Amino acid sequence: MHAHGGPDAFGVPRWDFSTNANACGPCPVALAAVQAADARRYPDPVYTDLRSALAAFHHVAVERIVFAASASEFITRLSAAVALAGGRRVWLPALAYGDYGRAARAWHLQAVATPETADLLWLCEPASPMGGAEAWAREVAGQGGVVVLDRAYEPLRLSGACSLGADALDRVWQLWSPNKALGMTGVRGAYAIAPLQGQPLAQTLAVMAPSWPLGAHAVAMLTAWVQADVRQWLADSREQLAVWKRAQIALLENAGWRCLPSDANYFCARAPQNVDEVLDVARLRAKGIKLRETTSLGLPQHWRLSVQPPDAQAALSAALTTQQENSP
């Protein structure tokens, strides 16, 4: 079973620290656009207007825009394309989203330790689960294989800057999935920007795509994504998230947790040893609180917590205090 944050068999957590969606969301303008989408009809199968809007927003040629049903779908389709073209090796960050490795294994791509030997290479900034820069980003971006920079959390960056400059970005695939930034993870839809020399692979990916990878609701979300009022809402939400993040880190550190540095709207933390041994995740979940343990992301004995508003932080603090008081 794939490990993910968010709703589970027990329903929607009231206080959800397990998913990295923007806790200020959903974005009102984007939500209204999705609610008004015409679900009675197919979208334009080549997404002419949306493709033009995204290309203009990113200042790239329209043929560089490649649509995907979701970031995970793109990860799988790109891995398949590389394997079918004769690729045999993949390079993965030591700590990374599990779908990179799962897609590689599904297509029998062998993981290698050195990027220069890989046919497909994955980067993510801000990285998950740590929320910072990729240590090897510049070196990996200069390799000869297919290099992908997953930018799912770039719109939720609260500090720092991307490791890659404009020239390097033009040499890699950029994968964008705005639903997290808009606080609308239930709406699936993503796109990639092909590198300047990536047209042959972009055409292959288009041929491999299902008909209408984006439904009407995804088109509405992505169309809203580039609008000025949505961009302003996102900028305002980053300011609010930064305030909440400082408070959340202080709360955990005062409780003895060790919080690791992060540039994003989430961070990793380790509970104090006495709590680590008795941290009752099931009991927390029963109280409506869900955390994300990071073993599946390559970081055992830590928890990734998204930044949440004060009421959620208060609930977490009360639950952790109760557990500490009841520990043997």
Rank of each mutant, 00 (worst) to 15 (best):
Q203A: 14
L182E: 03
L201F: 04
S211I: 08
A264N: 02
S306C: 11
Q227M: 06
V243L: 10
L175W: 13
A202T: 08
P310F: 04
L291P: 00
A216I: 07
S296P: 02
V243C: 02
W257P: 00
A242Q: 06
Q313G: 15
M184S: 04
L316F: 11
L316Q: 07
P200H: 01
W212V: 06
W225C: 03
P195V: 05
A206K: 14
R238A: 02
A314F: 09
S317G: 14
A190V: 10
S262K: 02
L252V: 06
L299F: 12
A209P: 01
Q174V: 09
V207L: 15
K287G: 13
T223K: 02
S262F: 02
A282Y: 00
F267K: 04
T294L: 09
L175K: 12
K245V: 07
V219L: 08
R292Q: 13
A271L: 01
P261R: 05
L196V: 14
I249Y: 01
A247P: 00
C268S: 11
P261F: 08
A255S: 08
A206Y: 09
D280H: 11
P300I: 09
A209S: 15
A224R: 02
V187E: 02
A216Y: 03
R292L: 15
Q248G: 10
R285G: 00
A220M: 07
A250Y: 01
R258I: 13
V207I: 13
P210C: 12
P310G: 08
L316M: 12
L205R: 00
A269D: 05
P178V: 09
A315I: 11
K287A: 15
L284W: 03
N274Q: 14
L251F: 02
V243H: 01
R285P: 00
Q174D: 01
W225M: 04
W303P: 03
A255D: 05
P300M: 10
G256N: 04
V207K: 15
L196K: 09
L291V: 11
W303I: 12
L299M: 10
V278S: 07
Q301H: 15
M221Q: 08
A314T: 14
E293K: 08
A286L: 13
W212D: 07
Q232P: 00
L214V: 03
V219E: 00
Y191H: 15
A220L: 07
L320E: 00
W257A: 10
N265T: 05
A228Q: 12
V226L: 05
Q308P: 07
L241W: 00
T321D: 06
D311S: 14
K245M: 02
Y266S: 13
C268F: 04
L201R: 04
